[in-house]
Design a protein around this nucleic acid. Structure first.
Lengths: 213, 213
DNA sequence: CCCTCGCTAGTCAAACTTGACTACTTCATC
DNA sequence: GATGAAGTAGTCAAGTTTGACTAGCGAGGG
């Protein structure tokens, strides 16, 4: 599973109705192009694919209000809504060291109710610990560690990353228990989209250090 | 950049001459199928592609010595050798939160000389810190943090992950400075391949918890 | 008045990835 | 000596991702 479906589905859902370029801009505002494959081609492809599969409904093209070619608008269907929550829940609980999916899920976390979000995050920790136990037991067999030579450093890296992830998740749980953020059913929702005239902090130019594109 | 090229190129290089199935087995021994896209189709595709590009030389098919259909054997070329080291060095220094590339690079770390490996890892830390400074300054603009609402948690996750990565890298540097492992030019190299008759600890069956495949 | 620049909106071919499938051999068992 | 399980080696179509490309419109300068 890649993050693109969750991102696109969630972005369309937040707007009620959106065209590709709008989704592209939302995701850029999130910084998603930095940590996921949210590139133009992938976004438009995902929209078309999900339309074929009945998760989105395409309204025929409308002329652009802001210059440029006409655009196709999409709306989420009931099946799309279901799929969105399925993907979100799955992404929150599963530990598979793919940071992009996890990041996407955090972005939509507040679409759930607080109690469910907390439950899923606790389940996530349980699974990370289970995973950790399985690998450490599995990969350090007879002969003790060091048996694998430097290859053991790869496993070391995984375990270190898993521990760090669990720690971060615990921190988030604490913040949520302390009442941070506004969840579904708790009044006005915070929506991470660009307001009219607001400047996009991730505008073009200025690449980050470490960027190898 | 995905990890598959580095993995396949490095695996062929360690053998001097290898066929696809052998590469596939090596990578399975490394556990690479757990943390990268090292699946049969991708491996065979990468072999063919790199042969086209002159990084590998394909010897025509040889009948199998162990049952099954005949196989194509590959050997690394001079240009392939260059490319291998280019990919390895690049993977070691760049921070792009793609764990698969980093893991692959760690697996081939000992192909370098110890001094260079240490230099690259120190450069890696420098870049992570640079990246961290850039994002924290860039993503917490006027109005202080909390401006972004729960979206700020995504950035929090990145920074947490970056810090954890830097800590792991420092640990590895310490171990290498203390003389751990055997590097190029230091006598017999440890090669992470299956010895005849040895059992593969990652044999089929038993999926890990959290695995969603 | 016209020309270029940058933004809007999206398309496309080429490359890569996935997962299921083929076909052949050996080995143990009945 | 037939059968079936397991291992060997690889192919293929369908789906996804990438990066470069197209094309319309408005604003501002000369």
């Amino acid at each position: 599973m890649s993050a693109i479906r969750l991102l696109v589905l969630g972005a369309v859902r937040q707007h009620g109705r959106a065209h590709g370029y709008q989704v592209r801009n939302d995701l850029e505002y999130w910084g998603a192009h930095e940590w996921s494959n949210a590139k133009p081609g992938s976004i438009y492809h995902a929209l078309k694919q999900m339309e074929k599969q009945g998760l989105l409904h395409a309204h025929e093209i409308a002329p652009s209000t802001a210059g440029g070619p006409p655009r196709t608008e999409y709306e989420i269907t009931d099946r799309g809504e279901e799929e969105f929550f399925r993907l979100l829940r799955e992404s929150l609980v599963s530990y598979d060291q793919k940071m992009d999916i996890q990041s996407a899920a955090v972005g939509f976390l507040v679409e759930l109710e607080r109690a469910e979000a907390l439950a899923l995050l606790r389940e996530r920790i349980r699974r990370i610990e289970e995973w950790r136990a399985a690998v450490t037991e599995h990969y350090v067999p007879e002969g003790g560690p060091g048996q694998l030579g430097h290859i053991g450093e790869i496993m070391n890296l995984w375990v270190h990353t898993a521990d760090s992830d669990a720690a971060w998740t615990r921190g988030l749980i604490d913040r949520l228990e302390a009442g941070a953020y506004t969840f579904a059913g708790e009044g006005e929702r915070f929506v991470g989209v660009l307001a009219e005239g607001q400047e996009n902090p991730y505008a073009t130019g200025e690449r980050h250090a470490g960027d190898d594109r």
